[in-house]
Amino acid sequence: MSRAIYWISLVLSMLFLALPLLLVLPLAFNESSFLTYPMEGFTLDWFKIAFTQPPWMPAFLNSLKVAFGAAVVAVVIGGLAAMGTMLSGRFGQIILSGLFISPIVIPSVVLGVAFTYAFGRAGFGGGYISLVLAHAILGAPLVFLSVMTSLKGLDPELERAAASMGASRAYRFRTVTLPLAAPGFMTGALFAFVTSFDEVVVALFLAAPQSTTLPIALFSGLRDRLEPTIIAVALMLSLLSLMFLLVLNWLQQRSRYKTRGK
C-alpha cells in the first residue's frame, strides 16, 4: 500500500517535471504554425527564421556579450570577496558573507527598480555597461558561494605543509590554494554566465532597444504572438542548458578525482 502511494506519486511528479518540455519542444519541427499535435510534417524553417530574422540573432549576440562581461566581473568581485572573507575573523566572516550573498534574496524587480533609478541618475542607464554591472551583482553571490565552498573544503594543512617547505605566502597562494580552488572559480563563472544569460526582469528594466537580450526577445515574443520560432529558440536554449550541465558535471568529477583518497 505505502509502496503504491510512493510509486504513483513518483510517476506523477516525474511526468509533471519532464513532460511539458518533452511534449512542447518537438513542435519546433512542425510544419504547421499551430502549436499542436498531430504534427503535420517535418521542417527546419522555424530554425531558419530564428537564425535569419530579427530580433533573434542580434539578441543572442547581445546576450552572449552581456553574459560574458557579467561573468568576468562577477568572478573578479565574487572571487576576491570569497578569498578576503576566508582570511577574516569569525565575526567578520558572518557579516561579509551576509553582505556578499544578499543580492540572491532580494526580489529581482526590486533590484531592477533600484538599478534603473540609480544608473539613470548617474547617467549610464540603458546600455551594455549598466546591464553588465547589474548582472555581475546578480552573479557575484554565486561565484562567492562556490569559491567559498571550495576554499573551505581545502585542507589547511596543505598551506602549512607548503610553508614548512619554505614557500612564501604569495608562492603558497599561487601554487597550492589557487589551483585547488580553481574548480570553484570555474563553477562560479558558469553559474554567473547562465544567470545573466537567462535573466529577464532586470534586463527588461535596463536594456535599451539596441541592447535587447535573448530573454527579452523571448518574453516579448511570448506576450505578443506565440509562434513556432519561439519554440525553436527555446529548444536551442534547452540544448545549451544541457551543455552547461554537462560541463558542470565534468568540473565536479575532475575536482572529486583529484581530492579522492583523503
Partner: peptide, 14 residues
C-alpha cells in the same frame, strides 16, 4: 628550514 611530516601527510592532491 625544518622538514615537517604531517599527521594526514598533507600531500598536494593536484
Amino acid at each position: 628550514n625544518f622538514g615537517l611530516v604531517f599527521q594526514g601527510y598533507a600531500l598536494f592532491p593536484h
